[in-house]
C-alpha cells in the first residue's frame, strides 16, 4: 500500500515532536537522571534550584529524577495497554461487524456491556484484588477493560463496509472470508484503528496514573502518579510545595495533548472537511467582507447597487 505523503499540518508536527521527546526520555530516563530518585538527600522540601530543577521532596529526593525515571513506566503501560486493547478491539469489532446473526449480535452486546460499566471502579477493584501486580499485570488489566469503545467503532465501520460493492465483488470472485476481512476490509480501517489506538493510550496513561495516585500497590518504583501520591500524602498543598505536584501534572497534560494533536491529524486525513479551512471571512472585489458558509459558495455580484435599482427579476 502506497502512502500519500503530504506535509503534515502544524498541529500534527508539534504532537509528533512532543511524543518523540517523551519516548526518548522513557528509554534513556534512568541514564539521564542526575540523581537516584529514591535516594534521600540533605535538602528537604526545597523549591526548584540549579541543583534540583524541580525541587525536592520531604525526604530530599530529587523530583526531576523521579519524573524522568517515572516516564518509562507511564509510557510502557500506556502503549502496552493500548496495543492489547486495540488488538482485542479489532478482533471483536471487525468480527462482530462482518458476521451476521446471533454471533455478531452477541459480540456487539459484550462490547456494549464493557462500555457501560464504569471503567475506573472496575479496574480499581480488579487490580486491588489480584495480588502482586507489576507493570505488566496493570497493563493487562487496563487493556482487557478498555477495548470496548474501539470495538464498537470498528463494528459500525465494518457493517457499512460490508455492504460496499468491492466486498461483494471480492466474494463473487471467489475470495475466502478470512482473506476478505484481512485484506479487503482491514486496510480500509487503518485510520480508525490508529485513532482508536491513540485514544486508548491516553486512557491507559490516565488510568495508570490515577491508580498510582490512589495507592493501588504494585506499580513499579517510580511513576508520575507515585510522585503525586507522595505529594498528596505529605500534604504538599498545605505546605505550599507546589513544585512537588505541578511537574507531574504538566507532563501528563503535555503527553495527552501530544496524543490528541496526532489524533487530529488522523481525523483530518479521514475526513478532509475537518481541516481548518483557511480564512472564512474574505474580501469581495468591491471591498465588502463576506462570510463563507460551509456547503455552498455565494455568488458575488460586482454591481450590487445597480441591480437594486432595476426591476427585472429574470435574466441572470
Amino acid at each position: 500500500m502506497r502512502f500519500r505523503l503530504r506535509m503534515p499540518s502544524l498541529k500534527v508536527t508539534v504532537g509528533l515532536a512532543l511524543l518523540a521527546v517523551f519516548t526518548f526520555v522513557a528509554v534513556f530516563g534512568s541514564a539521564l537522571a542526575p540523581y537516584d530518585p529514591s535516594k534521600r538527600g540533605k535538602d528537604l522540601l526545597q523549591g526548584p534550584s540549579g541543583k534540583h530543577w524541580f525541587g525536592t521532596t520531604h525526604l530530599g529526593q530529587d523530583i526531576f529524577s523521579q519524573i524522568l525515571v517515572g516516564t518509562r513506566s507511564v509510557m510502557f503501560v500506556g502503549f502496552a495497554a493500548g496495543i492489547l486493547a486495540t488488538v482485542i478491539a479489532v478482533l471483536v469489532g471487525v468480527t462482530a461487524g462482518y458476521l451476521t446473526g446471533f454471533a455478531g449480535e452477541s459480540l456487539s452486546t459484550v462490547s456494549n456491556v464493557f462500555i457501560v460499566i464504569p471503567a475506573l471502579p472496575l479496574i480499581v477493584i480488579v487490580t486491588n484484588v489480584v495480588p502482586n501486580s507489576g507493570d505488566v499485570a496493570i497493563a493487562a488489566v487496563i487493556g482487557c477493560t478498555g477495548w470496548a469503545w474501539g470495538a464498537r467503532l470498528l463494528r459500525a465501520q465494518t457493517l457499512s463496509l460490508r455492504q460496499r460493492d468491492f466486498v461483494q465483488a471480492a466474494r463473487a470472485n471467489g475470495e475466502s472470508t478470512w482473506r476478505i476481512v484481512a485484506f479487503e476490509i482491514l486496510p480500509n480501517l487503518t485510520a480508525i484503528i490508529a485513532s482508536s489506538f491513540i485514544g486508548t493510550v491516553m486512557f491507559a496513561v490516565l488510568t495508570e496514573i490515577a491508580l498510582a495516585f490512589v495507592g493501588v500497590s504494585g506499580i513499579s518504583e517510580w511513576n508520575w502518579g507515585e510522585v503525586l501520591f507522595w505529594a498528596q500524602g505529605q500534604q504538599a498543598l498545605s505546605l505550599g510545595a507546589w513544585w512537588w505536584f505541578v511537574p507531574a501534572g504538566l507532563c501528563i497534560a503535555l503527553l495527552g495533548t501530544a496524543l490528541s494533536l496526532i489524533n487530529f491529524g488522523i481525523d483530518e486525513i479521514v475526513n478532509p472537511r475537518l481541516r481548518s479551512s483557511g480564512r472564512a471571512v474574505v474580501k469581495a472585489a468591491d471591498g465588502r467582507k463576506v462570510r463563507m458558509q460551509i456547503g455552498f459558495t455565494p455568488v458575488l455580484s460586482q454591481n450590487q447597487n445597480e441591480n437594486q435599482n432595476s426591476n427585472d427579476g429574470g435574466g441572470r
Binding site: 500500500m1 460493492d165 468491492f166 461483494q168 471480492a170 463473487a172 470472485n173 479487503e184 486496510p187 480500509n188
Partner: peptide
Amino acid sequence: YAKRVQMIFQDPFASLNPVHT
C-alpha cells in the same frame, strides 16, 4: 462455481477496493 460464473457490478468506483492497485 465462481470459476465458471462471474459478475460485473454497476458502480465502477465502488466495485474496486480503493486501497489496492
